[in-house]
Amino acid sequence: MSDFFAELPQPRFEPAFDVTVHVGPPRDHGVTSAGHRRVVPILGGRIAGDLEAEILPGGSDRQLIAPDGTIGIDAEYTAVAAAGPLLIRTRGVRAGSDEVLARLSRGETVDPDAYYFRTTFEVEAAAPEFSGLQRTLFVAVCRRDGSEVRYRVHRIA
């Protein structure tokens, strides 16, 4: 490795906020031209920490399921904070053994170390108070807990 790259700063991950999203039963759209598509409605939830906001009902996670069961996460929802509304986007991957994925599909609680569930977290908003959130990269470590998805969002510093 060249010395040039050795001089680059090492990223740090700083906990920023915790998110709880209440989800409804998935709607299976079958195998489309893109692959096996499932849409999970977002019913509400809460963001707590550096960002405090209420998640509104009406968003969705448009999942694409690979032949090996790996789920591509593509969620979008609206949250409302004191300074105004925010559009939240998460994109990521949930993967695990057939047995673990089946248990998660049944709504069972599974140790989050038994599967891989990571997403990015993006914020779009008009209020100037949110400008810092829009200039920052975030990643999240997630878990599915029955009808809830919980994740801790980390700022990449």
Rank of each mutant, 00 (worst) to 15 (best):
T120K: 07
G58D: 04
Y77G: 04
D61K: 09
S60Q: 14
D50L: 10
E108W: 02
D61L: 09
T120R: 07
G69P: 04
P85V: 06
G72D: 11
P57W: 08
A82V: 13
I88Y: 03
D50K: 08
L104Q: 01
E108N: 04
I88L: 12
F121C: 14
R89E: 13
E99H: 13
D113T: 12
V100H: 05
D68W: 02
L87S: 10
D68G: 01
V100F: 07
G107W: 08
R89M: 11
L51P: 01
S60L: 09
A83F: 12
A95K: 07
A53R: 03
E76N: 12
D61S: 10
A53N: 05
L87A: 12
E99M: 13
G69Y: 02
D68M: 01
G69L: 03
T109Y: 14
R94W: 00
Q63I: 07
R91C: 06
Q63Y: 09
T119V: 12
Y77D: 04
A81V: 06
T70S: 14
R118V: 14
F121P: 07
R89W: 07
E108R: 02
T120D: 12
P67F: 11
R91A: 11
S105W: 08
P57T: 12
S105H: 14
I65R: 00
E76K: 14
P67W: 07
T120W: 06
A66D: 15
L56W: 07
I88S: 03
A114Q: 11
A82W: 07
V100T: 15
S97I: 14
A79K: 07
G96Q: 01
I71P: 03
V110K: 03
R94T: 02
R118P: 04
E54M: 10
L51E: 01
F117Y: 15
T109K: 13
T109L: 15
E54H: 09
A82M: 10
Y116N: 06
V100N: 06
G72T: 13
L51D: 00
V93R: 08
D68P: 00
R103H: 13
I55H: 00
T109S: 15
R118I: 11
L104W: 03
R91K: 14
A75Y: 01
Y77T: 05
T119K: 03
L56Y: 08
D113I: 05
V93N: 05
G59Y: 03
I73F: 06
V93Y: 05
V100C: 08
G72N: 11
T120V: 13
T119W: 03
R62E: 14
D98R: 14
F117H: 11
L64W: 12
T70G: 09
G69V: 02
P112L: 04
P67I: 08
A82Q: 15
L51W: 00
A66H: 14
A114W: 02
A114I: 02
V80A: 06
R106S: 15
L87V: 14
V80Y: 04
D98I: 06
G92P: 10
P112E: 04
L51R: 00
